[in-house]
Structures are given as C-alpha cells and as structure tokens.
Design a protein around this nucleic acid. Structure first.
Lengths: 330, 330
DNA sequence: CTGAAAGCGCTTACAG
DNA sequence: CTGAAAGCGCTTACAG
C-alpha cells in the first residue's frame, strides 16, 4: 500500500538532488560533500526512515553483497546449524550477507547463482555437480570450499571429513583395538558425509594394518542398537571398538550396551563425532571428535574475503579445528 | 568477468524482441505467443543458460518472491533448525523464498524489510519491537506469527511457549506432584523463550494451587547439575518433580541424579521440552513435550499464503502440534 | 562542491 | 500475434 521511501523523497525533503543523496549514503571517495549538506541529507534520511532498495542497488552495481551458501538436502544437525550461525556472524561485520540455499538434485530450481549474482559461492558438503561449479567459475564468481571437501580442507591429509574418520581410528588403535566396527546412521540423506567419514575410517584401518571396519546401521533406538552390539560382539573376532557416525548414533550404541547390561569402554569402546553439548552428559561421558565450528567458520570467512579481493587463498585450516576429546567411552 | 546472459541476448539468439522473451518466460496470460515462437525462445534460453536477474525483476515488479523470517539472536537449537528447514520446504513449491535474518538489538543493520521488500514477514520468538512491527504493517507488508507469540499461537490458551510450560505442569500435577522445580538453562541468549515457558509453568502452578516453581539454573555439567538436584531435594518441602527448559537441560538433571546415585522418576521426576531424537535414548527415557515442527511449519506456511492473498488467517494451529510424550522419567 | 543524465535488466500497458 | 518504449530506484562518470 504505502509506497516505499526512495532517494528522491529524501532529496526533496533535504532540498538537494537525488544524486547527492546517493553520494552521501555511499560516502563516495571522489565526491567531497559539504558537511552542512551532508548533515541535512542524513537528517532527512533519518526523518523519513529511508533505506536503499537492495534490488535497485544490485541492478545498478551489477553485483550484490551476498555470499551464497549452497548445501545438499541433508537434515540440519547441530554442527551445521552452528556453523551457518557462526559464518553469518563472521560475515555480517564485513557487510556481507549470507544466503543459504539447498540444492536438491531433482527440483529444477534454476541456478541460484545466476538469479542472485552473489559475490562468492560457499559450498559445504559437496552439493555442486562439476558442471555447476565450472559454470559458476566461468561467470567470474569464486567458489570456496569446493570439490569433495565438505566444510573445508585440512592440511594435506585431505578433506576434513576424512580426517574425522581417521582421528577416530587412530585413537582406538592407540588403545590396542584391532577389530573396529562402524555405526552408520539410519538416515539416507546424510549419504555424502557418511561416505567420507567412513572412507577416513577405512583408509586409517588400511594404513594401520587393521581389518576392514564392520559397518552396521544403527537406528536411534535402544532395542535395535542392542541388536547391532550383539552382532559386533559375535565370534569369531568380535569387534572391540566402534566408530560412530556422530554423537547421536554413539549414544544409541551406548543405550544398546546398557540394555544388554554391558558398558563402554570395557565391553565395547565407542567414539563419536561432533562433541554436542550432551556428549559430556552421557554415561559414560563420550569420547568424540570436536569440530570447532567457530574456527571453521572463521577460516571460511577468511577464504571468502580473499576470494572477493582476488588474493591467493589463506593457509589451510590448521588441523586444530578438529580435535579428539577423550572422555571415558573409549 | 564473463558478463551474465540477459534477456536481450536470448532475444538476439532467437530472433525476437526482448519483450517477447519476457512474455514467454512469464507465460503472460493476456499475451498469446505463437507456439513456434515460444519454442524458439525456450530453445535459446536453454542454449544460453539464461536465468532472469532477481534484482531487475524485483525492481521492476516492486516486490520480491521473498518471505523474510526474522529471529532474535538466539542459538540455533535442533527445534529451530528443523522448523526453518520445514518452512523452507513448505514455501519452495509455492515459489516463495525464505530468507532468514537475525535481529540484534544493538547492531544498526537497518531495516531488512525495507531493504528486501519481502512479501511477508514471519516473526518467530518475538524479535520485533512494537514500533518495527507497526512500521512493517504500514508499508503494507503482512506480519505473521506476531506479538508475543513465538512460533505461533495455539488455541485461545495463549502463546505456544506458554502452553509448553502448562503441559509440563499438568502432567506432573496429574501424577500427584505438588512441589515443582524449574531447571533453567545457563545461556542468557534464550531469554524470551525461557520467560514464556516459565510463565506457562507459573500460571499452571497458580491455577492448580501449587507453590511457585523453584527455579534453579542448571548448566550442562553433571557435577553442577547434581548440586541443583541437592538443592531441590533439601527440606522442608523438597521438590519432587522438575520441569526442564528443554531436553538438554533435562539430560543434565538426569546426569546429576545419576551422579548422586539417584534416579528419575523415583527420586525426582523430570520432564523436558523438544523431544529431540536422543530423548528416547536417555536413561531413563525422557518424558517430554514434542513440538511438531512439520505441523507448525505447515501452519505457518498457510498463514503466509493467506496473508499474501489478503484472505483472513486460517484457523489457529490445532493444539495437537504440541503433545506430551510420556516415557519413563516422569 | 553539486547536479543532470545514462543505464543496470527486467515487466507490462499500449500500439500496431 | 509481436514489438517499441517507459520506468522501477539506484550509482557514477561527466559537466559545470
């Protein structure tokens, strides 16, 4: 109903040209505005409650202040929510706006990068087909967090999610476990993450001369988790330690153990991933891999900035963004 | 670098005017396009990979296909993440785009509704000052989920969060508990939610003739939770049942009990809020309030649609969006 | 120091 | 059935 306030309205109110309003708003460097004029314009802006239209600005400038975050169609766990939250916070003071878009393989939702013309595309958990990525880069839009690397790369060891799996196994091997199980989630939507974490576990087992990990799906249900525990502990060569896909699945394993009158780490060692707040409250308190979302977000933000400025990317994320938290379950 | 493909490029490629491209793209009702022309245009669109610029479109139309979701600066718990996720899914098939913005009291981030010109503002957890809400409505933008009602209203009983607290107490009272404790979280950022849930608990206690609930902050730490448990159980008039702010806090209380060699519900009944996947895995399994995010999101989406069409709002959310899940802890 | 004017890429009433 | 043209609200090179 009420027409929005435009720069022209402000100009009329302040008795200047519309262009001058724009110069004041943007603090244009080559355009020195008389302090008195400036004050008058700002007063008018305040009085009318003027905010420039993002659409007009984007159209004129040919670009936005937007960072497009693309994700595959996975459920939002606490880690992802925290990461997005932290990244929003990192970008906000830089005047950058994080817009999140889920990419479903099926739905023809067009190409959000063309529609939105973001400054940078940040890509987490590998939602982009190679074609898409090439297309974005061809359009002159940098892509951060690319390739198979979900979240971000860590050192030369490889993608972060692979490192996660590796850290789990290394800890268990150091405690003399030689037959390792893997507790996979029930949810098919987490496919790409699962694949990578499991890959890390597989690689580590291989390098350390251990058997292939014995993978079982563990639903978030004590009874069915107990069944999985029983399978793992069956002879010959019972599994003595389990890497869980995440802390939730780990808790299911703990609940399964409890149901059988068993406990970690004595009957079966368990190590999770995520270090959710509840990890310390489980019984026994859960040994897990902490992904420091603040550090990861900070690093992603730095990569976004250098991509915008055309600088070379900053050093890779120090691996201390991923740390093993040793509690009692393993 | 590479200039983006525009409708003019498509027009040249197809040998028609730019206007015709636009008519084809938008399937303009009063504009019958020859099927042959139409095919040629669509082929050119496909060949060049054309996607209309959102900015130009928004500027010209004077509006966007955006629904602006404003939130206060709270941490993203699983419920919020799921709700946003579900709302995104509800809106997507309608061609509506959900853009989320956190509103911090301090930061002068301007008024996102002016900048973005959304079709509707959805407001969760009460982030909007009354002035702001009035301003948005004056601009002709409907506001959904308004006032003090976080998430949405439920029946005439009042705001959903108040109902949450009420449901907790009613269950405990039905089990003959008369002295109720309230386990508040450590995190100051959840202030408004806490206030409402606690208010619901207070009101229910009042109506049922119970004492004021005894509020203690419970950090997510077994040792300190044990201290809280000890305080609650101190004489005279020991607390026999605790409403927790959410399932995480509830788990802390359970861990505190366990540390003292006590257990729920015998020594202290515990009821949570959220019904997170882990609730069923706790020991004992947690009695809690389930907020059906799918139903809430669906209802919000319906309110968004009727707001856009100027229809009267749909019937209030049926209260079965909030249900008590009885397990063993209370 | 300030302003008139072009133009970003669309949509749509109007003319043919 | 199709197109020429205006105009959405800005930014900025250019002129004064």
């Amino acid at each position: 109903l009420a027409r929005a306030v435009t720069a022209t309205d402000v100009a009329r109110e302040a008795g200047v040209s519309q262009a001058t309003v724009s110069y004041v708003i943007n603090d244009h460097p080559s355009h020195r505005i008389a302090p008195e004029t400036r004050t008058r314009v700002l007063a008018a802006v305040e009085r009318l409650g003027y905010t420039p239209s993002a659409a007009a600005r984007a159209l004129r400038r040919g670009t936005t202040n937007t960072v497009l975050l693309v994700l595959p169609d996975v459920p939002w766990g606490p880690t992802l929510a925290t990461l997005v939250d932290a990244l929003t916070d990192e970008l906000e003071p830089l005047g950058l706006e994080l817009v999140t878009r889920r990419l479903r393989p099926g739905s023809r939702q067009g190409a959000p990068w063309k529609e939105l013309r973001p400054l940078v595309v940040v890509c987490i958990m590998d939602p982009l087909a190679p074609d898409d990525e090439a297309e974005i880069r061809e359009a002159g839009i940098p892509v951060v967090g690319a390739l198979l690397s979900p979240v971000t790369e860590v050192d030369s060891t490889g993608a972060a999610q692979i490192v996660v799996g590796r850290l789990q196994v290394e800890h268990l091997a150091a405690r003399n476990h030689t037959v390792i199980g893997y507790a996979a989630p029930d949810d098919v939507r987490v496919g790409s993450f699962l694949r990578l974490r499991l890959e890390g576990v597989r690689l580590a087992c291989l390098e350390l001369g251990l058997d292939e990990p014995r993978v079982i799906q563990v639903p978030l249900d004590a009874r069915r988790a107990a069944k999985a525990v029983t399978q793992w502990r069956s002879r010959p060569e019972p599994v003595t330690a389990v890497c869980a896909y995440n802390d939730e699945v780990a808790m299911a394993v703990l609940a399964g153990l409890q149901r059988l009158g068993l406990s970690a780490p004595g009957d079966l060692a368990v190590v999770g991933v995520d270090n959710i707040p509840l990890a310390a409250l489980m019984s026994p308190p859960l040994t897990t891999i902490d992904q420091n979302e603040q550090k990861i977000a900070h690093h992603l933000a730095r990569r976004v900035i250098s991509a915008i400025q055309g600088d070379p990317p900053p050093a890779r994320l120090r691996s201390d963004a991923l740390t093993l938290v040793v509690r009692e379950s393993a």
